[in-house]
């Protein structure tokens, strides 16, 4: 009895937090989404969302988020695999995580300089005789910088999953005749799939609502749902439409969470 009382007491901060910072904002967002620009109750925003402009925006958000997640995974997995095999793996891991502590805006500005006309990549191209290319404000630079920013979040869960694998399992696979590639394909990858799923979630969901980078690095040539929300709230002051996009974004996130959710097997 006393124990339960204590537990309820400990629940209070958690419950308060959830109500104040999770439930209330979602309700508010949903509430605002039913008001048009002039403040009248209507479904106009929802109707507007299903017009080609916003559907196209949704599609392109998903496409870019997919690309960002895909390239992050392609780079992160081998990196994590390599890290688990190095001697000072925790140190190497730390070095990869450290850049994620630096302010995003700062990193974005640094990339404006790097990818600019006179940045090192273009100087290199010039040296090769290829000549200066437009790198900044392209799909390439946008995806590159996004991948750079998200990659630590992809590496961490995969690294942890790999690190937990007992080495005897890999030995067992080779012992049974598996080559290195087969061992990876049939044992290592399936056993770390939960780490991969977590990594993809952590990258895909924020990538879906990226803003700032779409302006700084992609020069507003890439418009995602996140950019649209930012614009509606800060510039056009159309809170209703911004809230409506946010509602859809929240729905998409829940769907992704459910689809990629890690179910506990067995027991």
């Amino acid at each position: 009895m006393n124990n339960r009382k204590m537990r309820n007491l400990f629940m209070i901060p958690y419950a308060l937090w959830i109500i104040l910072f999770v439930v209330t904002p979602i309700i508010l967002v949903a509430y605002y989404s039913f008001f048009d620009i002039e403040g009248y109750f209507s479904f106009a925003n929802y109707k507007k969302f299903f017009t080609p402009v916003y559907l196209k925006m949704t599609l392109s958000s998903f496409w870019y988020a997919f690309l960002i997640t895909f390239f992050s995974l392609i780079i992160a997995y081998p990196t994590a695999l390599f890290l688990t095999r190095t001697k000072h793996k925790q140190l190497w891991l730390l070095l990869i995580i450290v850049p994620s502590w630096i302010n995003l805006l700062l990193k974005a500005y640094a990339f404006i300089g790097i990818f600019g006309k006179y940045g090192p990549p273009n100087q290199f191209l010039e040296w090769l005789g290829i000549g200066t290319k437009q790198i900044l404000f392209t799909d390439f630079s946008f995806i590159f910088v996004s991948v750079y920013i998200f990659i630590p979040f992809m590496i961490l869960p995969i690294f942890n999953a790999l690190n937990e694998l007992p080495s005897s399992i890999m030995d067992a696979a080779t012992d049974l005749g598996a080559s290195k590639w087969t061992t990876f394909k049939r044992v290592i990858f399936p056993l770390t799939i939960d780490g991969v799923k977590t990594g993809c979630q952590i990258v895909f969901i924020p990538a879906l609502s990226l803003f700032m980078l779409t302006r700084l690095i992609a020069g507003n040539r890439v418009i995602t749902l996140g950019t649209a929300i930012e614009q509606h709230f800060l510039v056009t002051q159309d809170w209703g439409m911004g809230a409506t996009i946010a509602v859809f974004l929240i729905i998409f996130m829940f769907i992704i969470m459910i689809l990629t959710g890690t179910r506990k097997r067995g027991v």
Partner: peptide, 16 residues
């Protein structure tokens, strides 16, 4: 090339 905010000053100044 791009549709940007305050960064436009920087981009023009640096011949970007």
């Amino acid at each position: 090339k791009a549709i940007v905010g305050d960064e436009n000053k920087l981009l023009m100044q640096n011949n970007e």
